[in-house]
């Protein structure tokens, strides 16, 4: 029981670390929160709403995302898109990620 819980916590930590990169990588074209959530899930990364929405707000506060409200189907939706600053750091994050994957693959081989 304790082992399962520890494993869940570790996996959660691992996933939490990659969500920023995942979200930024998918916001080259503007998307509202739920569409991003579904897109990430379709690509195999299930993210909890309680994690994604506050994260989007945080990234916006850090200047990495921009957002705008649009009225669609009689419902307002908040669309997010990567900002100029976000575009600048995304390649660096990708490079960093590739480095981590390479190192970990070597370690776990």
């Amino acid at each position: 029981m304790a082992n399962t819980e520890s494993l869940e916590n570790v996996v959660l930590e691992l996933r939490r670390g990659v969500i920023v990169l995942a979200a930024l990588s998918q916001l080259g074209t503007e998307q509202y929160g739920y569409s991003l959530l579904k897109q990430l899930a379709d690509l195999g990364l299930e993210v909890d709403q309680g994690t994604l929405y506050p994260l989007l707000r945080r990234l916006e506060a850090q200047g990495l995302l921009e957002s705008v409200w649009k009225l669609e189907e009689a419902r307002p939706r908040r669309y997010y898109v990567i900002s100029a600053e976000g575009k600048k750091i995304l390649p660096k994050m990708k490079k960093e990620w590739a480095g981590i994957v390479s190192v970990m693959n070597k370690m776990l081989a």
Binding site: Y34, K38, Y53, R75, P76
Partner: peptide, 20 residues
Amino acid sequence: KGRADIEKELRSTLEDMLED
């Protein structure tokens, strides 16, 4: 700051989820 904004986005998300 942005409490109303969070509420508005949450309502919109829940409506999207229901529609889905």
